[in-house]
Design a protein around this nucleic acid. Structure first.
Lengths: 106, 106
DNA sequence: ATGATACGTGACCCTTTGGTCACCTGTCAA
DNA sequence: TTGACAGGTGACCAAAGGGTCACGTATCAT
């Protein structure tokens, strides 16, 4: 299994994306803390966090009996760079910004 | 199934990522042309292209009995923007660039 | 017209994956 | 030191996903 295989497989599940959203909002949470935000047993959440960690999307640090989880944005940036080169990046960004501005209209 | 569900599911498979790579290198190819690059029957490739199209990662245009496939980078950019805000984007980009420069060393 | 070409559909099989549970190890506090 | 708390493992089951095939429709060239 290659590195980006792990990244894309990890991103494929909605629960795991939600976990990334939680860590994006606030870093350094424990498993139990994350579990409380989900309608799932601890074991399910643990499996998901394990896949995210193996993909490098989440980095962890132990502190006593707790394990703290942090979001790592680097693999996401590499996904971006795979199919968006420097030349088209400006156009795409402009297009996305325009879309946002149009959607903010009443 | 939500929009980004479709995008992430579509990106989860290595064959589909390879198809995006092919279209990134050269746009506007037909199914048969793409099939010739893969060790798989036409039916498998067709299923993959269908998922890519439903996710909006590939846009198509008919021309007689042929169907031309084009890469659409917008959903990729939206994936990026979900977990990388403007503030950290510069740092991450710099980090990735540094990584590339280090890897280019002998 | 008719054979070849390009794409499409539905059913089928096998593998992978998401989720749960019984059970276990390490750490903290009273 | 002993009970409560935080995290970890392996087996298990139902559901989703990848790939192929028989068969079908539309378009092109001769």
């Amino acid at each position: 299994m290659t590195d980006d295989d792990r990244v894309f497989k990890a991103l494929a599940d909605p629960t795991r994306r939600f976990l990334l959203d939680l860590l994006f909002a606030r870093d350094g949470r424990t498993l139990t803390e994350l579990e409380s935000e989900l309608e799932m047993t601890r074991f399910g959440v643990m499996k998901h966090l394990r896949l995210l960690e193996e993909a490098g999307l989440v980095v962890t640090r132990r502190s006593g009996r707790e394990k703290l989880h942090f979001l790592n944005p680097v693999p996401i940036r590499l996904v971006h760079d795979r199919w968006i080169d420097k030349y088209t990046e400006h156009q795409v960004t402009a297009l996305v910004d325009l879309k946002h501005r149009l959607e903010d209209q009443p």
